[in-house]
Simulated assay, not measured.
Amino acid sequence: MKITLIAGARPNFMKIAPIIDALKKHNAAAAEKIEYRLVHTGQHYDKNMSESFFDQLGIPHPDANLESGGGTQAEQTGNIMVRFEKELMENPADVVLVVGDVTSTLACSIVAKKLGIDVVHVEAGIRSFDLSMPEEINRMVTDAISDHFFTTSETANNNLRKAGVPENRIHFVGNTMIDTLLTHQPNFVQPPFWNAFGLTKGKYIVTTLHRPANVDGEQKLKTLVDTIIECAGDLPVVFPVHPRTAKNLQSLGIQTSNLFMVEPMPYLEFNYLVQYAKAVITDSGGITEETTVMHVPCITLRNNTERPETIEVGTNELIGTDPQNLYPAFQKLVSGNWKKGSIPDLWDGKTSGRIVSTLVNIYSK
C-alpha cells in the first residue's frame, strides 16, 4: 500500500504527526510495509506557523513541498491542484490521506479523485452549518468525494449518515490532535517571556483571534480587545497575534499594562501557556479541543461551532461575537462556577493506531 499524506497549514501538522508515528510502528512490526510520502502544500510557511512543527513534533521533513502559498482562495486552490497533480503523476499512490478542513484538504482531494485514487478524510463529518466559513465549504466538498471517513465524534458520524454515507465507510476513531497533545504534554516548554510578563500558573488569560467576524474592521476589533482587557481586570492577557490580526491591530494603538501581544508561538510553548491559563478566549476550533482535554475553561467568540462535543462534554462555552457577552462569561469564571467538563469518547491518545489498523484492514491485499 502506498499512501500520500497531505499537510498544508498549522493544524494539519498536529494531525499528521501521530499518524506518521503509527505508520512507523506498523512498519517496524509488520511483514507488509506501508509506503508513505509526506507532501507539504506550502499553504502556510511562516516559520512559527509551520517549520517549527516539523522540528518540535518530530515530523520528518516532507518528501515534497509544493510551495503554493499566497493569493486569493481561488488562486491558492488552483496552485495546489496544478502542483499536486504533477506530484501524484510522478509519485503514484493507492490512497491520498487528507486531514482537517483547510484549502489543501479540498484541493488535494479533488486532484486525487480525478486521478482515480481513493481519498481518506481524517476529521470527517464535522459541520458548523455556516456557509460563510471557507472551512465549511472545504469540509462539505471533501466529504462529498471521499471514500473513507475517520471521525472524532458521534455527532460527526450522524452528519455523515444524514448525507447518505454508508456505515461501512464511517470509522469512529477519535481525535489525532489529542494524540499529539498527550504525547507532547510532558515536553511542554515555558515561554521565554514568562517571567518578564510576571505570569503565574492559573492567573492569566490567553487570547487568540483570527476570524473575519472578529478581526475585520478596526472598531470591532478595538472594542473586543478593550472588553477582554476590562473583563480580565488585574490578570495579564497574553495575545499571540495571528498574522491576519496583526495587520489590523497596528493602527489601533491599544496600550495597557496587562496586555502582552506576542508573535505566533511554537506548539510546545503555546500549549504550556494554555495548560496553566485561568481561561482561554478564542475563535479557533482546534484550541477548544485542547482546552477540553486539559480541563481549561474556554470562551469561544463565535456564533457556531463544528465541534459541539467541546461544549456538550468539555470545558468550552460558545458566546457569539458580541463583546458584551464576555461580561457574564467572566462573571461565571471568576465566581468559580465554570463547568468542570470531561473528555469525549476515544480522545485517548490512541487514535492514530486505530487509523492505521483500519487502513490495513481496508487496503491490504
Rank of each mutant, 00 (worst) to 15 (best):
N12R: 05
N12T: 02
A17P: 01
D21C: 03
A30E: 14
H40M: 05
G42S: 08
H44A: 02
K47I: 11
G58P: 08
E67Q: 14
N91K: 10
A112Q: 00
H121K: 01
D130L: 02
S132I: 10
E135I: 00
I137W: 13
V141Y: 03
D143K: 00
T151W: 08
N159Q: 08
R161H: 11
A163S: 14
V165L: 11
P166M: 13
G174E: 02
D179Y: 04
L182H: 07
L182F: 09
Q185H: 08
N187M: 13
F188K: 04
V189Y: 08
L199W: 01
T207R: 06
P212F: 08
E218H: 14
V238S: 02
V238R: 03
H242M: 05
I254R: 09
Q255S: 14
P264V: 07
L268Q: 11
E269A: 12
F270V: 05
F270T: 02
Y272R: 08
S284P: 03
E290P: 05
C298A: 12
C298I: 04
I299M: 13
V313M: 14
N316I: 01
E317C: 13
T321E: 12
N325I: 06
P328Y: 05
V334E: 15
G349M: 05
K350E: 13
S352Q: 00
L359S: 07
N361M: 06
Y363H: 07
